[in-house]
């Protein structure tokens, strides 16, 4: 490709701006990581910038020996796994039949589903419905009500559309029914987009807390983010101790807060590089119009 006249200096200037952006993206995490590994005295003396001072793991040890915190981590992991599976099943069940252009009533179902994307009843009607259904304070309220995202369903369907109809038709001639076609053609071909959507659902559940805040009073079932919120908004270590049961000494609150933030972040940072190549494809598919 012929390129226009470009000055080398401008190329390096742009690269420099990008380096600055990378620093801005990573700086907060490096700083908090450093604080979580530092001694409390060093933090109080404002010595910790990007490298831990007085290196120690005591904050992590304290967090990991706290049964409330470890239970919350485990519960959120269980919850995330269940939610991701349920959501993926729902998404496929919804997207796959709608790819059949000859399906009678398809237009009606499509409109019915899309309408919910633009108009929602609001928080309180949902709250009252869960109350009437007996879902309030039941663990299922964190799983079922938001198990299907219309937006992700559309991404899935767009991907299914890209699979040629001729594949399906030849399978139909061989006598395969819709379920057989789904499991032997559509699902194997959709692995990348399924990985993407599973990641989106999993991250959404891992990061979500507002449903638990509103519909779940039982602290046992609070996901990690809500526990984190309570820890972060406790002003002093004594308050952390009384609110969340951390046995702690004065001045430790900063490192504990830093360590808890790192704990909730690390799972995401671990899966992120692995799934990166998938989600970009998924995110652009969503941009397509039906």
């Amino acid at each position: 490709m012929i390129r226009s006249k470009r000055s080398k200096a401008a190329d390096y200037a742009i690269a420099l701006i990008c380096v600055l952006l990378i620093i801005i993206c990573l700086l907060p995490m490096l700083n908090v990581l450093a604080r979580s590994l530092s001694s409390t005295e060093a933090i109080i003396r404002n010595e910790v910038l990007l490298w831990p001072k007085g290196f120690n793991f005591s904050a992590y040890r304290l967090v990991l020996t706290d049964s409330k915190y470890t239970w919350s981590l485990a519960w959120t992991a269980i919850l995330t796994t269940i939610c991701t599976v349920v959501s993926m099943v729902m998404t496929i069940l919804c997207a796959y039949p709608l790819t059949y252009r000859q399906l009678k009533g398809r237009g009606f179902f499509n409109t019915m589903i899309l309408f919910t994307m633009y108009f929602s009843a609001g928080t309180i009607p949902h709250y009252l419905l869960y109350k009437d259904l007996g879902l309030l304070n039941h663990p299922l309220v964190l799983i079922i009500p938001n198990s299907l995202s219309v937006f992700y369903m559309i991404i899935m369907r767009t991907f299914f559309y890209s699979i040629p109809d001729s594949l399906r038709e030849s399978a139909e001639i061989d006598g395969a029914g819709p379920i057989k076609i789904l499991t032997s053609i559509y699902l194997p071909l959709s692995k990348p987009v399924m990985a993407t959507l599973a990641l989106f659902y999993a991250v959404g559940r891992w990061n979500g807390f507002s449903d638990a805040l509103m519909y779940m009073n039982d602290r046992k079932y609070h996901p990690i983010q809500l526990l984190l919120y309570n820890i972060l908004n406790a002003v002093t270590s004594i308050e952390i101790q009384t609110q969340e049961g951390f046995a702690s000494m004065p001045g430790l609150s900063d490192t504990i807060q830093a360590a808890t933030v790192m704990f909730a972040t690390v799972p995401i940072l671990i899966v992120y590089p692995w799934l990166q190549k998938y989600f970009i494809a998924g995110a652009t598919l969503g941009a397509l119009k039906d």
């Binding site: 993206c25 995490m29 700083n31 991250v203 891992w206 990061n207 984190l228 919120y229 909730a264 992120y272």
Partner: peptide, 20 residues
């Protein structure tokens, strides 16, 4: 690197911001 912050929850970002 630039995509990564999108995967952090607001609670975590608030925690990072509070510390920073």
């Amino acid at each position: 690197v630039a995509y990564m912050p999108h995967f952090l929850s607001w609670i975590i970002i608030a925690g990072l911001a509070k510390q920073l």
